[in-house]
Design a protein around this nucleic acid. Structure first.
Length: 887
RNA sequence: GGGCGCAUGGCGCAGUUGGUUAGCGCACUUCCUUGACAUGGAAGGGGUCAUAGGUUCGAGUCCUAUUGCGCCCACCA
């Protein structure tokens, strides 16, 4: 076995095994009536994206779950795919066009879309390839894309159903408008960020009804405060709180809009907060949601002063027409200042909406858009979660979800872009009110019979296709076998940022259209941040590229490390060094296996462990490691079943490294030739690899293939069955004693600087017969690992002359030292220990005397405390006599 | 304005329903190039669990308040 390199090299294994699994079709799920399905649907990454750490974490979790379930015998389907990301993709392709000095309008809609499809063919699969690098065991034969024929059909079907139910409507409302992308956005797509802005105080003259002649000295003013002075060009009123006494007298009066000299109504409304600014609100119904509301209530006609690209239009007056909104702000402020109408400016911090795709400041804008009425849909979604048919992990997100759902607002779904599902609505060019909603273009208008029908130019929000993902990917609206077998799916794994965008909407869509919840569990993991706690993003340049990590440390290391530092729902802070842990562990697994492979007699080990296992025949170390394995297996299973993946990872790490490698392998070295050791070594390693496989698929496959095995791949081997009767508590406590004694001797060797190579003598004294037996039966372990040549196990003998003392539980350890012993050092060591024990003992006896404690505490606890107290007293006695013997 | 999360050894983090002596990784100290592994082994040092109260026989864990950091939501003109 000299062909096994000393260090594990992921580069030699990862691609090889991925291809092997793929070629054998192991990722593919089929409908198997004998098996129970377990389904995870991937949160579809956006085709313009590249794999970042958030994806790596997200997909590592999903892959662990799906591999675990697959090994447990479920028909495990992990359904992958991508999302067409309307705005983002269109932006990317438009940027490409810009290099050729072209705009999308130059190509025309059809040509442009061809171009996008071409782009998608070329680059849209990058992220899929990267997921393969991570080791994701998705069923790629079922890969879906939101613009696929089937999924597109589902989108149209849903739009039509909603329209027919009256849940989709078109109307003029204030929406979030991105001037750069030139499209409407939903509320969720407009992300609020705090901005250091200014609050400008501007004088609006009150119109004097008696005299048309203005006398600047006697003129009365109302001062309004605004953060966006440029919108004043669209003002149609000034509003006050009805309770505000300062402005009572203005009822029925008019004000004059400075510069444009337009007449403004004075209106009174409860929406106005008298405490903000001066209590006077300028009303711009076309550019602000509250103002729009005020406009409706008070019958004001909105004046839109901006073009789609947020430059001022001609309504804004010739002086400002064509200026950008911010340019206009400056110009306007200058003009106001000149006329002495700008009273003051003060700094004002406030949240401003930004486009989630390009981060441009969103402009609230009045326009005609399509909306989905959400309240009726939300009702079912709320109920499903309240009845726990859908559960969140961690549970606290339930509240966040419910709060959003209970205050849900209508969803603006139309986008003024070209890349996406075009709205299936056709208008008659002849008669005004001929509207047909249909998957296909109608032949003629149903009202007037004209064949001149045009389709709505807008497309649907990308999330309008994503919300159908769990069932549209399985063939809905068709009643497919897949849908019947795999739907509803089991677990959705996603990040917190996407609960509103996606999770909530999927629940609503699943219930409304597929008639069933889309998944029963929602696992929300943390956000990946860099070492300073800022969210990783391309624009900040603080990205740690998962592919770099895979390249340097391996995919297994990446998966293992990122999982082990992710507690449920807690954010993850990353730095490159953190991946060393996973790499080191992979290497440890590799070398432990290397040791086994170098010493394995392959013919001897093919037996059934349960049949082979004979408690009376096996040595302690074998009984112990088998017991520890099954105990770990049980705990790992429990952790995984409750989504505590980091806990599972830690259990495995601890077991494999610190028990199997540090102790068992060291002990097994002396008995490699024995059949018992051969079998147990092989069995525990092979089963451990299976337990490790979901977490570290590549290194486990590489080793497993080199071990005697049955079947094609560890990936489809069964998850080890827990053998409860092989969990041997006596063996575990016996081994603890041995380990404790060895450690204690090593400690003595270390403090007294006994050369590591030298064999020494040691005396082990215990009053307990049981302990003496355990020590005697396993004295070889102690001799080997503590380098003892002469070991005496005694009952009552006094401390040998010129020896130092160690204690573990009921066992006293004496190591005779040649040369001069520093008794002062030894005394102070023991005295320190004695003090510690006495403190603890005092504490314990206090509790044990407490009546309430004896009444209330569980019996096991009292028993534990009592036995501890006895042991403590015993140890204290020994320490005292030892101290005495030193003087 | 509302809601949520986090404060545990130098750093990054675990800590299940309250129950002996609070764990892990990195870093640190000393020793070890013995044929699985220096991406390693052995032995150590290091923590008033943010602060102040409270509940309890018993609090890192539950309650209240305070401080600091972070996140989310909201019609902060």
């Amino acid at each position: 076995m000299n062909d096994i390199p000393k260090a594990y090299n992921p580069k030699l294994t990862e691609d090889k095994w991925y291809k092997y699994w793929e070629d054998k079709g192991l990722f593919e799920a089929s409908i198997d009536a004998k098996k129970r399905p377990y389904t995870i649907v991937i949160p579809p990454p956006n085709i313009t994206g590249i794999l970042h750490m958030g994806h790596a974490l997200n997909n590592a979790i999903q892959d662990i779950l799906i591999r675990y379930k697959r090994m447990q015998g479920y028909e495990a389907l992990w359904l992958p795919g991508t999302d067409h990301a309307g705005i983002a993709t269109q932006n990317v392709v438009e940027k490409e066009l810009a290099k050729e000095n072209k705009k999308r309008q130059d190509l025309g809609r059809e040509e442009f879309l061809k171009r996008v499809w071409k782009w998608r063919e070329e680059y849209g699969n990058t992220i899929i390839k990267q997921l393969k690098k991570l080791g994701c065991s998705c069923d790629w034969s079922r890969t879906r894309f939101t613009m696929d024929e089937g999924l597109s059909d589902a989108v149209l079907e849903v739009f039509i159903r909603l329209y027919e139910k009256g849940l989709v409507y078109k109307g003029d409302y204030i929406i979030n408008w991105c001037p750069r992308c030139q499209t409407a956005l939903s509320d969720e797509e407009a992300q609020h960020r705090d901005v250091e802005g200014m609050l400008y105080y501007i004088k609006y003259p009150v119109k004097n009804p008696k005299s048309e002649i203005r006398n600047p000295k006697k003129e009365e003013y109302v001062i309004v405060a605004t953060t966006r002075p440029e919108t004043m060009l669209g003002d149609v009123a000034v509003a006050f709180s009805p309770k505000d006494k300062r402005y009572k007298h203005l009822k029925g009066k008019k004000l004059i809009l400075p510069i444009l000299n337009r007449e403004l109504d004075a209106v009174f409304d409860r929406l106005v907060d008298p405490k903000f600014g001066t209590g006077a609100l300028k009303v711009t119904p076309a550019h602000d949601p509250i103002d729009f509301q005020l406009g409706l209530t008070h019958g004001l006609t909105p004046v839109n002063v901006m073009n789609p690209d947020a430059t001022m239009n001609k309504e804004a007056s010739v002086d400002y027409e064509g200026m950008d909104r911010f340019e206009c702000r400056d110009a306007l402020l200058e003009d106001l200042k000149e006329r002495g109408l700008l009273v003051k400016t003060e700094p004002h911090r406030h949240a401003v909406a930004h486009c989630y795709r390009c981060h441009t400041m969103v402009e609230p804008r009045l326009s005609k858009q399509w909306f989905v009425r959400m309240k009726p849909l939300a009702k079912k979604g709320i109920e499903a979660v309240k009845k726990k048919r859908v559960k969140f992990y961690p549970a606290r997100w339930t509240k966040v979800y419910l709060n959003w759902m209970e205050n849900i607002k209508d969803w603006c779904i139309s986008r003024q872009i070209w890349w996406g599902h075009r709205i299936p609505v056709y208008y008659c060019n002849k008669c005004e009110d001929g509207i047909v909603v249909s998957k296909k273009k109608p032949d003629k208008c149903q009202k007037c019979g004209s064949a001149d029908m045009v389709q709505d130019p807008d497309v649907l929000d990308t999330w309008f296709s994503s919300w159908l993902w769990p069932f549209s990917t399985l063939g809905w609206p068709g009643e497919t076998e897949d849908l019947k077998y795999f739907y509803p799916t089991d677990t959705l794994v996603t990040a917190q940022e996407i609960i509103f965008f996606w999770v909530a909407r999927m629940i609503m869509a699943g219930l409304e259209f597929a008639g069933e919840i889309p998944f029963s569990g929602v696992y929300i993991h943390g956000t990946v941040r860099d070492a300073t706690g800022t969210k990783m993003s391309k624009s900040l340049g603080n990205i740690i590229d998962p592919l770099d990590i895979i390249n340097e440390f391996g995919a297994d290391a990446l998966r293992f490390s990122i999982i082990s530092i992710t507690a449920v729902g807690q954010d993850v802070f990353l730095s490159k060094e953190k991946f060393e842990m996973g790499r080191n562990f992979a290497n440890k697994i590799w070398n432990a296996s290397r040791l086994v492979l170098m010493n394995l007699d392959r013919d001897k080990v093919r037996v059934d462990l349960c049949k082979f296992y004979d408690k009376s025949k096996l040595e302690l170390k074998e009984r112990w490691i088998v017991s520890r394995f099954y105990q770990t297996l049980e705990n790992v299973g429990a952790a995984l079943d409750s989504y505590k993946i980091n806990e599972a990872v830690k259990l495995i790490y601890e077991f494999f490294w610190h028990e199997f490698c540090d102790w068992y392998l060291e002990l097994a070295k002396s008995t490699f030739s024995k059949e018992d050791t051969q079998v147990i070594l092989y069995k525990v390693l092979e089963k451990s690899l299976r337990m490790l496989h979901p977490f570290m698929p590549f290194v486990t496959e590489e080793i497993w293939q080199r071990l005697p095995h049955e079947g094609d791949s560890i990936m489809v081997a069964t998850w080890p069955h827990i053998q409860k009767d092989l969990i041997d508590k006596k063996a575990e406590s016996d081994m603890e004693l041995i380990i404790g004694v060895i450690t204690s001797i090593r400690n003595i060797r270390s403090t007294w600087r006994i050369e590591p190579k030298r064999f020494i003598a040691a005396y082990l004294k215990s009053a307990k017969k049981e302990s003496r037996e355990t020590l005697a039966e396993n004295e070889d372990y102690i001799k080997r690992l503590a380098r003892i040549e002469e070991l005496k196990i005694v009952t009552k003998e006094k401390r040998p002359e010129a020896s130092v003392i160690g204690v573990f539980d009921d066992v006293e350890i004496y190591v005779p030292l040649q040369g001069v012993i520093d008794y002062e050092k030894e005394r102070s060591k023991l005295a320190k220990r004695l003090e510690e024990l006495e403190n603890r003992s005092r504490d314990l006896s206090g509790r044990l005397k407490n009546k309430k404690f004896l009444q209330n505490a569980p019996k096991e606890v009292i028993q534990k405390f009592k036995s501890t107290q006895e042991e403590l007293k015993d140890q204290i006695g020994k320490l005292k006599s030892n101290l005495k013997s030193l003087s």
